[in-house]
Design a protein around this nucleic acid. Structure first.
Lengths: 344, 344
DNA sequence: TGTGAAGTCGAAAACGGTTTCGACTCTTAA
DNA sequence: TTAAGAGTCGAAACCGTTTTCGACTTCACA
């Protein structure tokens, strides 16, 4: 490995001058600077980031906390897209990303400790139980943190316009003529509250009275939970004409469950998802859903994180990213006569 | 940040002793050792990995090269699973992972340079153009490298039993009665050669003469390429009764293309995929495919990489991981009379 | 009583950079 | 002619660890 000293020797100057030349300091003669740069390149010099970090306290590393109980981390249809965008944007700015985990090498370790070991410059958190004590600790630390789809006074946050998303989807269903709509909602977290607000808002506007049986508790990205939700629904003696699922993945398994029970989609029940990932296009007919702008979410998260760490100031900016209704074939106007429950 | 010196001061001993106590050296008294450990914990001491790396030349970081032109990196249905396994296993052994990329921060940089900057201990490569000059350079460097689904004399390799995979799939088709089988194969890389070998082997065994029109060139994980392959196929005046696609993703879009052209799957053409990822279960009927053991592939890759870097010896072990036939509903015995080409 | 070995400990160098601050050389203006 | 200022450069300290090697005790044994 060729060091800054080797370059200095080869150039007949000091390591300080080489360092300055490489870092664009103004107090180095233009000629010597060029000589040094040329020589450095020629010798294949690559700066050692560890050494640099030791003196500058910057590792050019941003931590990523992506942990999903149900759908193991990186394979998550929706979050892997966000992560990809986080990564791309970080790299464009010269940062590498490191996954933060507890339990490294068999040693229990808090997220914060992991960050401190690696001297992470900033952290992006998504897809996790934000109420976790360790996550809270990390958010309250003095490491700059950006969260995706959460709201906290301690950190900056990027999120989709969830209220609007479910509002639009519901509004769309209503515009097709649906009035009996059931929303199978995901884990009871911040995002879910927002979405339920959007759901109620759309009902409200259409003067459809909200009743508790329009909500069914389900879970995000969990096949079985959504099959269960359908099973639960089928016990009713009056079926809704439309059903919204927590996300596209859930919707797909939900549709399968409905069909396995002899319910036609969309003829008997219209279905809507959420996320707008590609799997929604793979099934037939294409899933009606709300597309989240994953690349913007990820990009904004990276940028905000980097902006904070570079200005050495933690703030709690909130950025909302727009969503888009994707009409598919899983919805249609409700039939006047339902098979199981003829309507008046 | 509390350093080793702070602990030393608090314990009334030297930093050397603290370091030794923390690293289980034998030349430190059991009592002082315990006192130091207790104090360190109490003070919230967390070792600085940068500083440590500077003197030990070990970063506890393994690099990962996952780059896919078609299906941007992390969102790849198949490779994201492998990556997840690589990550889990690495973490279990105490290693963090870092994505290797060219072009960091707007600066062009070879993969090897990136590794050197970060002093990566070892690298796992997958899902990439292995013929790339930079990839070759990295493989030939003295950094321990493990590749997935490739074969090179310079590095260790983990791969699925690709020959057997396509062999079994083809054999299964043949056992159903198919004799006119077309294999739409992916990019012309090592893995593809293997798979085509498996294809021919199965034909051979069944005494079905291989002809060039049984192969159609397609691409891995590329929607359009596979739609094109189908379009190409439909120009023939005699259709095959079975078709294999490069992977599940391709198969799904292939099936859609077939259906959009009025061809019934599986009634008119049976279809097989490869990979065994979950999307194959989402469509109806479930896709017939070959499941690759992604978690073992990833795990073995991590382990092999770590084993090499810890023993400081690069070798070129080859490990083959078994595959499994997953019969689905996209295959059936061929009908005696094909719509487009009645068989004698 | 002297000696060698075993057990403990710490001074100091090393890892590869960055950054401060003083020194030196030239200009330029008074 | 001189003083001030601008332009260059390098010595040295520093970042937080690890590791070598020598020094000092203590103890058993001859």
């Amino acid at each position: 490995m060729v060091t800054i000293y080797d370059v200095a020797n080869a150039c007949g100057c000091s390591s300080a001058t080489v360092s300055k030349a490489l870092n664009n300091y103004s107090d180095v003669n233009i000629n010597t600077k060029e000589r040094i740069l040329k020589k450095a390149k020629e010798m294949g010099f690559v700066p050692n980031l560890q050494a640099r970090a030791l003196s500058t306290k910057r590792t050019w590393n941003i931590g990523v906390l992506f942990e999903d109980k149900s759908n193991s981390g990186l394979t998550h249809y929706y979050f892997s897209q966000v992560l990809q965008a986080v990564k791309e944007q970080a790299e464009e700015k010269g940062y590498d990303i490191t996954f933060i985990s507890k339990n490294l090498g068999g040693v229990e370790m808090s997220y914060l400790e992991h960050c401190n070991r690696r001297n992470i410059d900033g952290v992006v958190i998504a897809c996790i139980d934000f109420e976790d004590q360790q996550v809270q600790q990390l958010m309250e630390s003095n490491i700059p943190v950006v969260v995706i789809d959460y709201d906290s006074e301690h950190v900056s946050a990027i999120m989709s316009d969830n209220v609007r998303g479910v509002y639009e989807l519901t509004h769309y269903m209503i515009s097709l003529g649906h009035r009996d709509i059931v929303y199978a909602y995901g884990h009871e977290v911040f995002v879910t509250e927002e979405r339920i607000r959007g759901f109620k808002k759309a009902l409200d506007e259409a003067k459809i009275p909200f009743t508790e049986d329009m909500l069914i508790k389900s879970r995000y990205s969990e096949k079985q939970a959504n099959i269960d939700a359908v099973t639960e629904l089928l016990k009713r003696d009056k079926l809704p004409t439309a059903m919204l699922f927590p996300d596209d993945y859930s919707a797909i398994w939900g549709i399968n469950a409905l069909r396995n029970n002899g319910i036609k989609v969309p003829e008997e029940i219209s279905v809507g998802g959420f996320d707008g990932v590609e799997i929604g296009e793979m099934i037939f007919p294409r899933l009606t859903t709300i597309r989240q702008n994953t690349s913007r979410l990820g990009k904004e998260a990276s940028l905000k994180c980097i902006q904070m760490l570079e200005s050495k100031s933690k703030d709690n900016t909130k950025i909302t990213v727009g969503v888009e209704l994707i009409p598919g074939g899983t919805c249609m106007a409700p039939r006047l006569f339902q098979s199981k429950s003829p309507r008046r």
